[in-house]
Write a protein that binds this DNA or RNA. Structure first.
Lengths: 356, 356
DNA sequence: ATAAATATTTGGAACGTTCCAATTTTGTCA
DNA sequence: TGACAAAATTGGAACGTTCCAAATATTTAT
C-alpha cells in the first residue's frame, strides 16, 4: 500500500545534512544551528516523517522506552477505569504512553500480559493484582530493573512499591459516625474473608466499634461476594439475627447497593429505618436514591499518584520500594440517616487523618 | 541495575548453535530439529531470555507489530470501559496487546495519542472519536496502510471502517413499544442536537411515531446535555408543555435516570404515572428502581466485533472500508409501565431486526 | 557405495535509530 | 591575517532481531 517508510536518512538527504544532524534535531539538541534545525523540521513535516521509537530504543539499550504497562483486575468496575484514567493523565503528560490490560481476575492472563508487556520493553509497571497473585510473580521484573508499583491491593511479601487506600481508618470513621448517630448494633456486611483488603476493613470496623465503647460481636460480621447480589444476601442474614442490627457498614459500595435493595424488598427505607454506609464512593453513589453515605477513596487520585511514583522511580533508575497509604474521607449523604436536613445536596465531607 | 540483556546470541552460544537457529526456534519454524528446539528452549528458560519485539519488528519492516491502538473518548463512562474490555479480549487472544488511551473528548489529546501510537508502530487502530473530530484526521494513518476502525460514533467523510449500533431501529422499537402500550403523546428527551448519534436516534423516534400513526410534534423534542442533570432539566420542560406527554424515550440511560429523578421530585412514579425508556442499557439500568426499560447495545460486543474487523484487515493487508450496524434490542423492564406483572425479574427481551 | 534429494544449520546483511570520536566550519582576538 | 577556541556537523559502529542464500548433514534410492 504505502511506498517505503520515510526514514531519518531520507530527511537527511532531502535537507542536505547528515543523518546525525537529523537525529540531533529529533532530540532537540542545542548543538544544531537554529537555521539547520528549522530547515530539517520543515523537511520532516513535508515528507510526513514519523519517528520510529522501536529503532530508537533498540539503540539506547534498555531503560527509556516511554511505555508504561498498566494492569488492572477488572476494568469493567468503574473504580478501576477511573484509576486507569488517573494513570493515563500523568503518564501521558510525561510523554509516555500506557499499555493497558485487563486480567479479569485471571492469574494466568495476568502472567501473559505482563510477559507480553515486558517483551515490548515497558519501562515500568503499575498493577492492581488479580486475586491470589503470588508475590514472587513480579520478582523477575524488578530483577531486570523495571520498577513496579502495586496499587489498591497490596502484595504481602513482594519488595515493590505500593499505594493503597487507608481501609482501616476509613472503616473506622464510618463506624464512629454511625455510633455518633446513636446506633448500638452495627453490622459489617459483605466481602470475601481471604483478601488483604477485607482484613484491613474488618480491622477498621473492629477498632471503630471498640473506640465507640461498643462490644465486638462476631455474628454481626456477615461475609458474602463483594457484589450487589452479595449485599442482598448479607442483609438477609443480618436482619434475621436475634440481636438485629440497626445499621451496617459495607465492604464496598456494590454491597451497599445490594443491602439497600434487600431493605426495599422488606419495605424498609435505607436511611430512615436502617442506616447503610458503603466504601469506595463509586460514581453512582452520589446519584443513587437514597444517596449513599460512603468512604471516598478517589481511584483517579490513586492512579495519578501511582503513576507519579512510578515515573520517579523510572527516572531515578533506582527502585526504592516505598509504601503509601492514601487518605480517605467519609462522605455523608442520605443512606445513613444523617443527611436528611439537606437532601440531594452534595454531601458534607469529613476529612480524616491518614496513616503513613 | 541488571547486567546486560540476554540476547539471542547469548542463547546461541550457550546452546552451541547459531543465532539463526535460535531465531528459527523463536518463530516456531518446522525447519529445526526437534532435539535442537528443546535444547534451545531449555537454555532460553534457564537464562531468562526475554524476546525483544522492538528489534524484531525493526527488521520485519512494518506490518506485524502485534500492537493495536485503542482510543476512547471517555473511559470513565462504563460504556467505553466495557468496549475496551471487549477489544482486549479478542486482541489478546490473537497475541496482540492493546495500547489504550483516553481522550476525554479532547481533540488535541486525541491527535497526540494517535501520533504517539503511530511512533510506537501500532498495526491498527480502534477509535471512538472525540466530539467534533475531523474526518481527515485519520487520513495519514490509512495512507500509511494502517487499518482504522471507528466505533460507536461514525465519522461522516472518512474512508474507514466503522461499526455503530443501530440507533435508528432501536429508538423506533422503543417508540412502537410505548405506542403499543396506548401512549399517544411520546416525548424525545435529552442529547445535544449537533451529533450524528442524536440525529440517528431522533430519526428513529420520528419513524416510530409516524409508524404508530401518531403525529410528529417538534415541541415534544426537548434537547439537553446527555447527562443525568440534563434529564432532570428536560423532563421539567416536557411536563410544562400544554400538550403534556405521558411517556418519553430518552437519548440515553443517563438522561433517563435524570428524568426519573425529575418525576420523583414531582411526586410522579416512573412506570406508573409516566413511562420512561432509556438507551444503552448501562450496567445500572437493571438494578435501578424502577428497573429501566431501555435499548441494549452491548458495548463489549461492539468492542469484540470491532477488534475482529480490525484484525481481519491487519491480516489481509488490504483495508477495505466496511460499515457494520449492529443489532440492538429493547429490554422491557419496569420504567415503561409494562413490566409490572413480573417485577424485579430479568426483563424479557425483544430482538429487533438489524440494518446493514 | 554413490548420487540425488531432503533436512537442518548457518554466516552475513539488513532494519532505523543513537552514540562516539573526529572533522569541518565559524567566530574571536591579537 | 594567523592562531586558536567554539560551534556545528559528520561518518561509522553499535543495538537485537529476521531474512536470505548458501553450506552442511542426513536420508533415500539405485
Amino acid at each position: 500500500m504505502t511506498k517505503t517508510r520515510v526514514t531519518v536518512i531520507d530527511i537527511a538527504k532531502a535537507a542536505g545534512v547528515s543523518k546525525s544532524t537529523v537525529s540531533l534535531v529529533l532530540q532537540g539538541s542545542s548543538l544544531v544551528h537554529e537555521g539547520t534545525r528549522s530547515k530539517v523540521s520543515a523537511v520532516m513535516r513535508e515528507l510526513g516523517y514519523v519517528y520510529n521509537r522501536g529503532a530508537a530504543n533498540l539503540r539506547q539499550a534498555g531503560a527509556k522506552s516511554k511505555i508504561v504497562g498498566v494492569v488492572v483486575n477488572d476494568l469493567t468496575n468503574s473504580f478501576f477505569a477511573e484509576l486507569a484514567v488517573g494513570v493515563d493523565m500523568v503518564v501521558q503528560s510525561a510523554g509516555f504512553v500506557q499499555f493497558l490490560s485487563n486480567t479479569g481476575e485471571s492469574i494466568d492472563r495476568q502472567r501473559e500480559v505482563v510477559a507480553s508487556m515486558r517483551e515490548h520493553g515497558i519501562s515500568g509497571l503499575i498493577v492492581s493484582p488479580a486475586r491470589a497473585t503470588d508475590a514472587a510473580d513480579f520478582k523477575p521484573l524488578v530483577a531486570a530493573g523495571i520498577p513496579v508499583v502495586v496499587v489498591v491491593r497490596n502484595l504481602p511479601g513482594a519488595k515493590v512499591s505500593s499505594i493503597v487506600s487507608d481501609n482501616q481508618a476509613g472503616m473506622m470513621s464510618a463506624v464512629k459516625h454511625l455510633a455518633g448517630l446513636g446506633h448500638k448494633r452495627i453490622a459489617f456486611l459483605g466481602g470475601f474473608p481471604d483478601t488483604a483488603v477485607f482484613d484491613d476493613r474488618l480491622a477498621g470496623y473492629r477498632s471503630g466499634v471498640e473506640a465507640a465503647g461498643l462490644d465486638y460481636h462476631e455474628d454481626l460480621v456477615v461475609s458474602s461476594a463483594p457484589s450487589r447480589a452479595g449485599g442482598v444476601e448479607a442483609i438477609g442474614k443480618a436482619i434475621a439475627l436475634s440481636r438485629r442490627p440497626t445499621a451496617a457498614v459495607c465492604f464496598n459500595d456494590a454491597v451497599a447497593f445490594g443491602v439497600c435493595d434487600g431493605l426495599h424488598a422488606r419495605r424498609l427505607e435505607p436511611g430512615a429505618d436502617f442506616a447503610v454506609v458503603g466504601f469506595d464512593d463509586v460514581i453512582e453513589a452520589q446519584a443513587a436514591v437514597p444517596a449513599l453515605t460512603t468512604v471516598s477513596v478517589d481511584p483517579q487520585g490513586i492512579g495519578r499518584r501511582g503513576a507519579q511514583m512510578l515515573l520517579k522511580q523510572i527516572n531515578a533508575g533506582k527502585a526504592e520500594a516505598e509504601t503509601v497509604v492514601t487518605a480517605v474521607r467519609l462522605v455523608v449523604r442520605e443512606s445513613c440517616g444523617a443527611g436528611k436536613t439537606a437532601p440531594a445536596k452534595t454531601g458534607k465531607s469529613v476529612k480524616i487523618e491518614t496513616g503513613r
